[in-house]
């Protein structure tokens, strides 16, 4: 299969991705392929570049070199190096749904309208159609009772579940999770992880940055370990957590409560 063909079938295809902030190289020649239906977890210590990698996928950060394709479409620049016009960039971005560490709900809109906003004003769906979709998604994340609530009245776990529904409403080719439970009180982590786990069972394509090792082991098809901007290990979760190849990963896993079983 040629390279072009591979990028067409993959949900996300990252090639030779490099990025520096000032003179610090945060990503170095990263290659990553996420197949449709696959769950890929990115692990690494803080400052390893994992959030930057995720934010490059939807062009919230502009990489210095390399290419990213979302469902076969290149994001950010054209092949001839021309930067993508904002409208076109927005179209490709709509193929990705991002869930942020800090939820980032829009506080002037109630729960229902946070979810219907993009389907109506980006995709041009009718209000009724968007509300039907939002109702179904809010039910999926267990938030059907809260349609009329405003974000400031919700708990962190509830906010994050709404944020997941909001991202799903665009029916993206891939969901990007940037440490979705890191800002949550420990007792609220479970409800968000349960939603994400359901999504993986339903076959959603997901790329996730997380510190929840047991969870990563349970839901991932592929685990990627990032160290100083380099992918130093990638494997299926079983291999990754039981027989890591590098000392670095072994040490990292010792310092985290390594899950004994999936």
């Amino acid at each position: 299969m040629s390279e072009a063909n591979t990028s067409e079938t993959a949900a996300v295809s990252i090639r030779h991705l490099s990025k520096s902030f000032d003179d610090v190289e945060v990503l170095r020649d990263v290659e990553l392929e996420v197949k449709t239906g696959e769950v890929v977890t990115i692990i690494g210590s803080s400052g390893s570049g994992k959030s930057t990698l995720l934010r490059c996928i939807n062009w919230l950060e502009k990489p210095d070199r390399g290419s990213i394709h979302i469902a076969g479409q290149r994001i950010g620049v054209h092949d001839d190096g021309r930067p993508m016009p904002v409208r076109e960039l927005a179209k490709v971005r709509a193929q990705t749904g991002m869930v942020f560490q800090g939820f980032n709900l829009w506080p002037h809109l109630n729960v229902l309208h946070n979810v219907t906003e993009a389907p109506i004003h980006v995709q041009g769906k009718s209000k009724r159609e968007a509300e039907e979709l939002a109702t179904a998604l809010l039910e999926k994340v267990g938030m059907s009772q809260k349609h009329d609530s405003y974000p400031n009245t919700l708990s962190g776990g509830q906010k994050q579940r709404v944020a997941i529904a909001r991202a799903l409403a665009m029916q993206p080719a891939v969901m990007l999770f940037d440490e979705p439970t890191s800002a949550l009180d420990p007792e609220l982590v479970g409800e968000v992880l349960a939603v994400i786990k359901d999504l993986s069972a339903e076959g959603y394509t997901m790329v996730m940055v997380t510190h929840e090792m047991a969870f990563a082991r349970a839901v991932s098809d592929q685990v990627v370990f990032l160290e100083k901007g380099l992918i130093i290990e990638r494997a299926d979760p079983e291999t990754f957590f039981t027989t890591p190849k590098t000392d670095r990963v072994r040490k990292f896993l010792e310092n985290h409560d390594t899950p004994s079983s999936a």
Binding site: V86, A90, R93, W106, A118, H121, Q123, M170
Partner: peptide, 18 residues
């Protein structure tokens, strides 16, 4: 204005104008 909120808007496919 919160950068996080505009990022959420851009990430979901809104143009800067929207």
């Amino acid at each position: 204005f919160s950068r996080e909120q505009s990022e959420a808007a851009m990430a979901i496919g809104m143009t800067p104008w929207v």
